[in-house]
């Protein structure tokens, strides 16, 4: 029987690249997004190219009350889950408007953490599984330009790290992905440095390889580990004056 991958936030560019990669490697797919209509073409494409089973599901990460029903409706508990849900928001808006900030916090931390937590329970009971969360280098240190998003990702990173620690001996592996800059819908139009920017397909291959080797934390482009190590090590007295 083929293994199954559940993707939360399946409309994301990175998620679509991962779907292609895992389907090419023989996984059946469960694609979940707010608007499953938007998944129809992708699902059909995956079936045609790779001859795998693909189902689509409605999933809103802000609807925490609906999580139990969502999981019930899946029929099959996936072998691997990938959470690509994320929402950058607009930093000035998040500063000015607590409701805007709350949506960013809930979309990047509360919702992803709770749904992966619920899946972890079931995987632990079953005795195996892999959980992959896409967090961000933005969570490595809060910066003026995007600390609302960054702090939510920091929370998500810490949650994944704790979950990994807890499940390490239970057959469930947890992997944290920090993609660095990726050329996706989220970053379209931003002047990204091409050396620091990955393509979605590169992210997918890196995630696939990292899962195979049971990596814990993945920086897709290794240069990001160096960059973030330097940023993390800057003394606060100095860091607070920078504009990074």
């Amino acid at each position: 029987m083929k293994p199954t991958l559940l993707i939360l936030g399946a409309t994301s560019d990175m998620a679509q690249a991962c779907a292609q990669k895992y389907a090419a490697e023989g996984y059946d797919l469960q694609l979940a997004a707010r608007d499953p209509e938007a998944l129809a073409a992708e699902a059909q494409d995956l079936r045609l190219r790779h001859r795998v089973e693909v189902s689509t599901h409605t999933f809103d990460v802000l609807d925490t009350a609906g999580f139990a029903a969502f999981l019930e409706a899946l029929h099959v508990l996936p072998d691997t889950v990938l959470c690509a849900v994320g929402f950058m928001g607009d930093q000035p808006a998040s500063q000015a408007n607590p409701e805007a900030a709350a949506v960013v916090m809930r979309s990047n931390y509360e919702g992803p953490a709770l749904i992966l937590g619920a899946l972890a329970e079931r995987m632990e009971a079953r005795g195996h599984g892999t959980i992959i969360g896409i967090s961000s280098v933005a969570g490595d240190r809060g910066r003026a330009s995007n600390y609302v998003y960054g702090s939510a990702k920091a929370g998500f990173t810490a949650f994944l790290s704790g979950l990994r620690n807890r499940l390490a001996k239970k057959g469930v592996h947890v992997m944290t992905v920090k993609p660095g800059f990726v050329a996706t819908r989220m970053t379209e139009g931003l002047p990204l440095n091409p050396r620091l920017t990955a393509q979605p397909a590169e992210v997918a291959t890196a995630i696939w390889n990292a899962q195979k080797h049971h990596r814990n934390t993945l920086y897709v482009k290794p240069i990001w580990l160096a960059v973030m190590t330097v940023i993390r090590l800057l003394p606060e007295a100095l860091f607070k004056r920078t504009s990074l």
């Binding site: 059909q44 494409d45 045609l48």
Partner: peptide
């Protein structure tokens, strides 16, 4: 580049519908 889905294939006629 992002309109790259295959939509249908008929193995009888060999017709492929794609973006």
């Amino acid at each position: 580049a992002r309109m790259n889905h295959m939509l249908d294939f008929d193995p009888e006629t060999g017709q492929l519908v794609a973006e």
